[in-house]
């Protein structure tokens, strides 16, 4: 069997705020078609890892390649779902309008979205079960609905690789199931999905690949091989199983 293509390759990535390293010398190879969780304690640099891969934060050192080419040349292959709390939901706009923003990247400068883009946005809204809310002012959506709108915006980008920053944060069971179903659909279509994730209990159920992170990379690989007490203890600094069962 030939080995799968590498979708994301990160070399020597180092990020520091105020001389304090947030990410230290990270090397990562993420194979095409995996559903990968990034786990680690608070302040481990999970969001920072995604943001520096996407060029939102400037790293001190390191490089990122998407399918063997520099990230800057491959932006159109990459979609991003930021943390829900990173924007002001009182902004005067509708759910459909936010999803349409996902089409802006391919449109480029100045050109306005047309019928084709609107159709794609409506389809994405339908996929996340939000079609009936298309005209709703975004502040009048619940937290879970806002998260689904963000997901739809990324789906509209029709990318090969999806980066998601805590998409399950503060959503109810219905939304969680809706989101995980979409993630699985993406994997079926051989897309690569990288998710910052907090809930260790659901890692084996939702994901097939995992990266343990605590400023340094602790381990990365298939969930069935490396999701074990040893790595959890190394990452969180406590014996996780023992602590939970106390």
């Amino acid at each position: 069997m030939e080995s799968p293509k590498i979708a994301v390759q990160v070399d020597d990535l180092t990020v520091a705020y105020n001389y304090k390293p947030v990410l230290w010398d990270i090397d990562l190879q993420i194979p095409e078609g995996v559903l990968m969780a990034i786990v680690g304690p608070n302040g481990a640099g999970k969001s920072t890892l995604i943001k520096s891969i996407l060029g939102i934060i400037d790293p001190i050192a390191g490089s990122v390649a998407i399918y063997d080419k520099p990230y800057e040349k491959q932006r159109k292959l990459v979609a991003y779902v930021p943390q829900k709390g990173s924007v002001d939901w009182d902004f005067p706009t509708t759910a459909l309008d936010v999803v349409m923003m996902g089409t802006y990247g391919k449109l480029g400068w100045i050109k306005r979205p047309g019928k084709k883009e609107k159709k794609a946005a409506l389809e994405a809204l339908e996929k996340v079960g939000m079609l009936s809310f298309k005209g709703r002012q975004i502040s009048q959506l619940s937290g879970g609905q806002q998260q689904r709108v963000f997901l739809a915006r990324a789906l509209v980008q029709d990318a090969a690789i999806y980066f998601m920053d805590e998409p399950f944060q503060g959503v109810d069971a219905t939304t969680e199931i809706a989101i995980i179903n979409i993630l699985k659909e993406l994997r079926k279509a051989n897309k690569t999905v990288i998710v910052v994730h907090h809930d260790l209990q659901t890692v084996p159920e939702y994901f097939d690949w995992v990266t343990f992170l605590n400023v340094k990379k602790i381990a990365t690989g298939p969930v069935k091989d490396i999701f074990n007490d040893d790595n959890l203890t190394k990452t969180y600094g406590i014996n996780y199983k023992v602590a939970v069962n106390q």
Partner: peptide, 22 residues
């Protein structure tokens, strides 16, 4: 009018705008 789309998306979500290549 020319940069309407760019202004709107920057006002709403600057980080995301950057990832789209603007």
């Amino acid at each position: 009018l020319l940069f309407w789309k760019e202004f709107k998306i920057l006002l709403f979500d600057a980080d995301y705008t950057k990832t789209l290549g603007f």
